[in-house]
Amino acid sequence: MASLSLINICKSFGDKKVLKDLSFSIDHAEFVSIVGPSGSGKSTLFHLIGGLLQPDNGEIRMESSLINGKRGAISYMPQSSSLLPWRTILENVMLGEELLGKKDEQGALEMIAKAGLSGYEHAYPDQLSGGMKQRAAFIRSMLSPQSLICLDEPFSALDEFTRLEMQQWLLSIWEEHKRSILFVTHNIEEALYLSDRIIVLSSRPAQVKAVFTIPFARPRRESIVLTEDFLRWKKKIYNELRGMI
């Protein structure tokens, strides 16, 4: 049974069709990226999975239970770090757990240490750099008890160096604590480097245009980004996307 599956999802606002017969699934401990032209309804997709919106048609299933319009079934990391400024980092990373019940301070402290944020447990978010805030936001979603983590362009606001560093860091954490991840990005390279599978969406109304299974072995080294193979894949996906612009 897949971790998350979307079956024939349709959604329109007024007479504007945003999603049309969208179907895909994510397996346990699988890292799936979604790329698509901007305005292809990726945020609508997240709102549907997060339960903020109801699909007009179709089913969203988590394991085997229907989660149409049900909140709290996924763990979420937004584009902006969205840490509460009045909470310390420790209190912030436990927020996801706190909303659903139990807090585990020991686990949170261990995770903070692993993430390289030791010494900042009791700092406030404003005292941290952009990359560190995103780390804290990611730990928050890792510590939440849900099995699927949705990441909404988490590194798009970071500069190139920090972004590369964060991608490596994300992989290292993820390879250690395998969770199912749905990752939305505009960046083909990022998607290739991180994912097991890449789903390419078409422009409006969004449908699955192509699915690529990425064969690079794990654990992945940063150096694969420069290999011939990687470039070939990049071209392939780029061509797929270019057809729509």
Partner: peptide, 12 residues
């Protein structure tokens, strides 16, 4: 608005 969105998505 961003914080509100996060809280809603997180199931608060």
């Amino acid at each position: 608005a961003d914080l509100m969105h996060y809280m809603k998505m997180a199931g608060a």
